[in-house]
Lab assay of single mutants.
Amino acid sequence: KLETFPLDVLVNTAAEDLPRGVDPSRKENHLSDEDFKAVFGMTRSAFANLPLWKQQNLKKEKGLF
Rank of each mutant, 00 (worst) to 15 (best):
D35T: 05
P6V: 04
S32V: 04
A14C: 12
E28I: 03
R44D: 01
K37Q: 14
L18G: 05
V9K: 09
G21T: 08
A15P: 14
D35R: 01
L50F: 06
S25L: 15
K1M: 13
F36M: 02
A14G: 07
L18T: 06
S32Q: 04
K27Y: 04
N29I: 08
L50P: 00
R26E: 06
E3D: 12
L64K: 01
V9E: 06
T13G: 03
Q55A: 05
P19K: 01
P19S: 01
D8C: 11
V39M: 06
L2H: 14
F40M: 06
F47G: 00
V9M: 14
L58Q: 04
P24Y: 04
P24W: 05
F47V: 00
P19E: 04
E28A: 01
T4N: 07
N29S: 09
T43V: 10
T4I: 14
P19W: 01
G21E: 11
G21A: 08
P51R: 02
V39P: 00
L52G: 09
Q56L: 12
V39L: 10
A14V: 10
A38T: 14
A48K: 13
K62C: 10
K37D: 13
L64N: 02
R26N: 11
R44Q: 08
T13V: 14
D8E: 14
S25W: 10
G21K: 05
L7N: 02
E61T: 12
M42N: 00
K60W: 10
W53I: 11
L50I: 06
Q56G: 08
L18Q: 04
F47R: 00
E16H: 09
A14W: 06
P51I: 03
A14I: 11
F36T: 00
V39C: 14
P24T: 04
E61Q: 12
F65L: 14
Q55T: 01
D23N: 08
L7Q: 02
V9T: 08
S32D: 07
P51V: 04
E34L: 09
R44W: 05
W53G: 09
E28F: 03
K1F: 10
Q55D: 00
V39Y: 04
F65I: 09
L2M: 11
L10D: 03
L31H: 00
K37C: 13
Q56A: 11
P51F: 01
T4P: 06
K54D: 12
E3M: 11
K60P: 00
K27F: 04
L31A: 00
H30A: 07
D8N: 14
H30V: 02
W53K: 10
L64G: 02
A46D: 13
Q55W: 00
E28C: 03
L58A: 06
S32M: 04
P6R: 04
M42I: 09
A48D: 11
L31P: 01
K62I: 10
P51A: 08
E34A: 13
P6I: 04
M42T: 05
P51C: 06
E34H: 11
G21N: 07
T4Y: 15
N57D: 14
R26T: 08
N49F: 10
V39A: 09
T43P: 11
D8Q: 12
N12I: 06
F5C: 04
L7G: 03
V39S: 06
F5Y: 15
V9D: 05
L52E: 12
K60N: 08
E16D: 13
K62Y: 10
K54C: 14
P6A: 07
G41Y: 07
N57T: 14
V22I: 08
V11A: 11
G21P: 06
F40I: 04
L64T: 01
Q56M: 12
D8H: 15
E34D: 11
L2E: 08
F47S: 00
E28L: 02
L2T: 13
R44I: 05
K59D: 00
S25N: 14
N49D: 15
N57C: 15
E28Q: 02
F36L: 03
F36R: 00
A38N: 13
E61Y: 05
A48R: 10
T43K: 07
F40N: 00
D8W: 15
D35V: 08
L52D: 12
F5Q: 04
R26C: 11
G21L: 05
V9W: 12
E28Y: 02
S25F: 15
A38G: 08
L52N: 12
S25T: 15
V11F: 07
L2I: 14
Q56C: 11
A38S: 13
T4D: 04
E16T: 08
N12F: 07
K1G: 13
E16F: 04
K60E: 11
K54N: 11
D33P: 08
K1S: 11
Q55Y: 01
L58E: 04
F5L: 07
P6Q: 05
K37S: 14
K27P: 07
D35L: 05
V9F: 15
L2Q: 13
A15E: 15
V39H: 05
V9G: 03
E3A: 10
V39D: 00
E16I: 10
K37V: 15
N12Q: 08
G41V: 05
P24V: 07
E3G: 08
F36N: 00
E34Y: 09
E28W: 02
F47C: 00
K54H: 14
S32N: 10
T43W: 05
D23Y: 03
P19Q: 01
K1D: 11
F65V: 09
K59H: 01
D17P: 02
F47D: 00
K60D: 07
K54Y: 12
S45C: 12
L18Y: 07
F5D: 01
K59N: 02
R26A: 11
K60H: 09
V39F: 05
V9S: 08
D17V: 02
N57E: 11
P51M: 02
A48L: 09
S32L: 05
V11K: 09
T13C: 11
A38V: 11
R20F: 15
K54M: 14
H30M: 03
P6H: 04
D17S: 08
A48E: 10
K60A: 12
M42R: 01
G41W: 05
P6Y: 02
S32G: 07
K62A: 15
N12C: 12
Q56Y: 08
N12M: 08
P6M: 04
L58N: 01
V22H: 03
V11Y: 07
R20K: 15
Q56I: 15
V11L: 12
R20I: 15
N57M: 14
L2Y: 15
L58M: 12
S45M: 14
P19L: 04
E28H: 03
A14F: 06
N12Y: 08
V22N: 04
R20Y: 15
T4C: 08
L31Q: 01
N57I: 11
L10Q: 01
L18H: 04
G41P: 00
E3R: 05
A46V: 13
L2C: 14
P51W: 01
E3T: 11
L7V: 09
V22F: 02
E61D: 14
D35I: 05
T13P: 07
N29Y: 12
G41N: 14
G41T: 06
R20W: 15
K37I: 14
